[in-house]
Computed example of a mutant assay.
Amino acid sequence: MRKRWQAGVVAIAALGLGIGAVVHTQGASAASFPSATGTVKLTASKPVSGTLDGGLKRYQGSGALGSESQDEGQDPLFVLADGATLKNVIIGSPAADGVHCLGSCTISNVWWENVGEDAATFKGGSSARYAVTGGGAKSADDKVFQHNGGGTVTISGFQVSDFGKLYRSCGNCKTQYKRAVVVKNVTVTAPGKSLVGINTNYGDTATLSGITIVGDSKKKISICDRFTGNKTGAEPTKTGSGADGTYCKYTSANLTYK
């Protein structure tokens, strides 16, 4: 049974802006998710080119997209073309394989209430740029963001709780890239396993700043894990954790524990 996160406060959609204005309560485990303005059920992946503004409706899978499993190879709810933007969307359960970005994309104010296989997978080429701004995710048994293609993922103003990994550079894809991730102004609420995982043998880098970690007084959540990746499909080898100034770029000053 997937663990459920209990909201402490209510998020209100900002009038006229179409953006969730999240109200924070001092001492709460995490800020609340916005309330859905309606529900849309998807039985097949929805392609997005240009901009799709969901108006904070809840999108969830049905039929062929009705699985809550962690099985690999599921279809996503949304497929974003190169340059597309998905914004003001709540992804409910079942979430299947969330969002796929085929090239550069922007994911703005998107909320995953219960992550399926992955929240979003980035599949563009070596020059692709993916931006995740605002929003949040909870109840991710494994990964939230999976980086299979190349380029740079920037995650900012995001919140995550009850998760396995916030970001993972693919450790065993058939085609590998030098990848980069930037994580800034993100709130992390325990339990969780790790923020980022990267492959040093391909030259990956992770740059972190403004990270607030809630409910992890024993510092069990790993900040940056380093691996030796491969192209064979084998399980990658973990080689270390923590800041090293070369691949995992951050200092203790970039982390705040509450």
Results as ranks from 00 to 15, higher is better:
residue 1 M to L: 15
residue 2 R to M: 10
residue 4 R to M: 14
residue 11 A to L: 07
residue 15 L to S: 15
residue 19 I to G: 03
residue 29 S to H: 13
residue 33 F to Q: 05
residue 34 P to G: 11
residue 39 T to W: 03
residue 41 K to H: 06
residue 50 G to E: 04
residue 53 D to Q: 10
residue 56 L to Q: 06
residue 67 S to P: 07
residue 71 D to A: 15
residue 72 E to K: 14
residue 86 L to V: 03
residue 94 P to V: 07
residue 94 P to G: 10
residue 99 V to H: 00
residue 100 H to P: 00
residue 102 L to P: 02
residue 106 T to A: 14
residue 107 I to E: 02
residue 107 I to G: 05
residue 109 N to W: 03
residue 110 V to Q: 00
residue 110 V to K: 02
residue 111 W to Q: 04
residue 111 W to S: 08
residue 112 W to H: 09
residue 113 E to G: 09
residue 118 D to S: 13
residue 118 D to W: 12
residue 119 A to N: 02
residue 120 A to M: 00
residue 123 K to S: 10
residue 125 G to A: 14
residue 135 G to L: 03
residue 136 G to L: 03
residue 149 G to Y: 08
residue 152 T to R: 14
residue 153 V to E: 08
residue 154 T to Q: 12
residue 155 I to M: 04
residue 156 S to Q: 14
residue 157 G to V: 09
residue 157 G to W: 05
residue 158 F to K: 02
residue 160 V to R: 06
residue 160 V to I: 15
residue 162 D to S: 11
residue 164 G to D: 05
residue 165 K to E: 13
residue 165 K to T: 09
residue 171 G to F: 04
residue 172 N to F: 10
residue 173 C to D: 12
residue 176 Q to W: 01
residue 183 V to N: 03
residue 186 V to K: 01
residue 191 P to C: 09
residue 192 G to H: 01
residue 197 G to Q: 14
residue 199 N to H: 02
residue 206 A to C: 03
residue 208 L to R: 01
residue 210 G to C: 04
residue 212 T to W: 07
residue 213 I to T: 06
residue 213 I to Y: 06
residue 214 V to Y: 08
residue 215 G to S: 09
residue 216 D to N: 11
residue 222 S to T: 07
residue 223 I to K: 04
residue 225 D to G: 11
residue 227 F to T: 03
residue 228 T to F: 09
residue 229 G to N: 01
residue 229 G to Q: 01
residue 232 T to D: 11
residue 234 A to G: 12
residue 236 P to S: 01
residue 238 K to T: 07
residue 239 T to N: 04
residue 239 T to R: 04
residue 240 G to Q: 08
residue 242 G to N: 07
residue 244 D to A: 01
residue 249 K to E: 08
residue 255 L to C: 00
residue 256 T to H: 10
